[in-house]
Design a binder for these strands. Structure first.
Lengths: 125, 125
DNA sequence: AGTAGCCAGTTACCAATGGATACTATCGGC
DNA sequence: GCCGATAGTATCCATTGGTAACTGGCTACT
């Protein structure tokens, strides 16, 4: 039975809906973090890599290339030695900061409760 | 060189920061979508599975178990035939809806621009 | 009596994504 | 003529996600 109510949920049930497409894109392991890290200004490849700390260069490259393809960051190469590559948020990329920050703030507020819930669950409550 | 500015970025550079831990958790393939789908009320396993459409039952089970462990959803089993299992957002889970909706709205607003950027990138501009 | 079906999964196996480590190109300095 | 710095590739391994088939308890149909 398909009710009005189901429709009122938005078309999240449709795999083609913008939300789902975008979640597929920014919902991988490092994309959201990379955008958040770039919010205060451009960063170089190594700054991102060392900042994240645990990402393999291959994976960081993939992440940044996808962001570039999606029009969320620009990649500027300076033909110097040693080479310098700078990643910068585009206006569209910057506009994503606000919603991502909302998630980030939620995270900071609830991380303790989440850890607590996990401990209870694991204790077999 | 470590500047004040780097500190002002928040401790996103620290892998233990709440934001990063939470992004690791809800940043997998189906978690955010599952929470969004549950926002209008409880759903059964098959409702989620059929609604998402392309998720394997094994993976959906994993996703829901993680959400339960994190204290974001509750899992109620009714000992009927055929069995009935209902997933419901906890208050903490519900509080995540607002930030996730912010991302969702951003997605709906920018999906066209993203597709456009992709097409340009792929055309080798 | 036998069988088929419903729901909420589980099991076994395969594909795709992510991670660790080593290597490359370029050039200036030692 | 060798080292080091940067921004990556290349190669191989680990972890996650996906596919398809099966389970188990009970009901309904034949």
């Amino acid at each position: 039975m398909v009710t009005n109510e189901q429709y009122a949920r938005g078309d999240l049930f449709n795999p083609q809906c913008g939300t789902r497409v975008v979640l597929d894109r920014i919902g991988d392991k490092w994309t959201a973090l990379a955008v958040l890290l770039l919010q205060h200004g451009p960063l170089r490849f190594t700054e991102l890599r060392d900042g994240i700390g645990s990402v393999a260069p291959k994976v960081l490259t993939q992440t940044l290339r996808r962001l570039e393809r999606d029009g969320l960051v620009t990649r500027e190469v300076f033909a110097e030695v040693p080479p310098r590559v700078v990643y910068t948020l585009t206006p569209m990329g910057s506009s994503l900061i606000k919603p991502l920050t909302a998630v980030s703030e939620w995270a900071e507020e609830h991380i303790v409760a989440i850890n607590h819930a996990q401990a209870e669950y694991d204790a077999g409550v």
